[in-house]
């Protein structure tokens, strides 16, 4: 009992001494009032230690837990001001998303431009253009391939001529083929305006129509013209341009 009392008294005396030292150390009176509050609280805590031990077993641990919790909270609230790294990371993400939007916008505009040009030049109804663009990530891009889908009611003479045109498969790699295969088809293509002169130029341009074109349902002549137009207007390799026919609704 006496042991306990003496240790408690020693604690109290030491804390009061500390508080006196602190008061001396403090730079001016303005701070002293606040420091006095803290030292007063600490002295109170030390004097109350026996009572605290009685009421809540390990208040010491509570106090330390409270301190660590408190400093963690303070750190968290300070973290609300983002660091430079964080800002840069966010900026990168934002730039990436804006780049994506730019790419999408450029692509839609490109597709609209191709569709308008094809419709204007050939008079064929274009139902959709799908351009695949490879972006280099630095604001530039290369058009790798373009798929032009023609509207179903486009060529009047074609819809009934080709039964296979119902399934609009893409034209595969263009491979040289003898013109004789197309002989029957060209008869129908004559209905298209100025089809004949371009028919002559066909082998010269190297854009020889694949037999598979029959399955696309696109008149070879029209396809060749669209192909030439798109590849010359947008600097796309002729192999990268595909023309397909939308399945005709009346057929």
């Amino acid at each position: 009992m006496l042991d306990w009392l003496s240790s408690w008294l020693r604690d109290v005396v030491a804390v009061i001494l500390l508080a006196a030292l602190v008061e001396l150390l403090l730079p001016n009176e303005r701070m002293q009032r606040y420091a006095r509050l803290v030292t007063g609280l600490i002295i109170l805590l030390v004097i109350l230690t026996p009572l605290l031990r009685l009421v809540q077993g390990d208040f010491q641990r509570n106090l330390e837990a409270g301190y660590s919790e408190w400093s963690r909270q303070l750190e968290n609230s300070q973290a609300k001001m983002p660091s430079l790294d964080e800002i840069l990371r966010k900026a990168e993400v934002a730039a990436g998303s804006s780049q994506e939007q730019t790419v999408a916008l450029a692509r839609t505009q490109l597709e609209a431009g191709i569709a308008a040009a094809v419709e204007q030049e050939t008079g064929a109804g274009v139902s959709g253009v799908d351009a695949a663009v490879v972006w280099d990530g630095k604001g530039g891009g290369v058009i790798s391939s373009v798929v032009v889908t023609l509207a179903a009611e486009n060529g009047s003479g074609k819809a009934d001529s080709e039964e296979a045109g119902m399934n609009s498969t893409a034209i595969e790699e263009v491979s040289p083929v003898d013109i004789g295969v197309q002989a029957e088809q060209t008869a129908q293509k004559q209905q298209e305006p100025d089809a004949a002169p371009e028919q002559e130029a066909l082998p010269a341009m190297g854009a020889v129509i694949d037999p598979a074109a029959e399955e696309t349902g696109v008149p070879p002549e029209l396809e060749r013209r669209i192909r030439a137009l798109v590849s010359s207007g947008w600097q796309i390799g002729a192999a990268g341009v595909q023309v397909r026919q939308e399945p005709s609704r009346n057929g």
């Binding site: 606040y34 509050l37 609280l41 600490i42 109170l44 805590l45 109350l48 301190y67």
Partner: peptide, 13 residues
């Protein structure tokens, strides 16, 4: 900031 230091002590009391 000095008052902030006192908060855990006040809590315990």
């Amino acid at each position: 900031l000095i008052l902030v230091l006192a908060v855990p002590i006040i809590n315990v009391i």
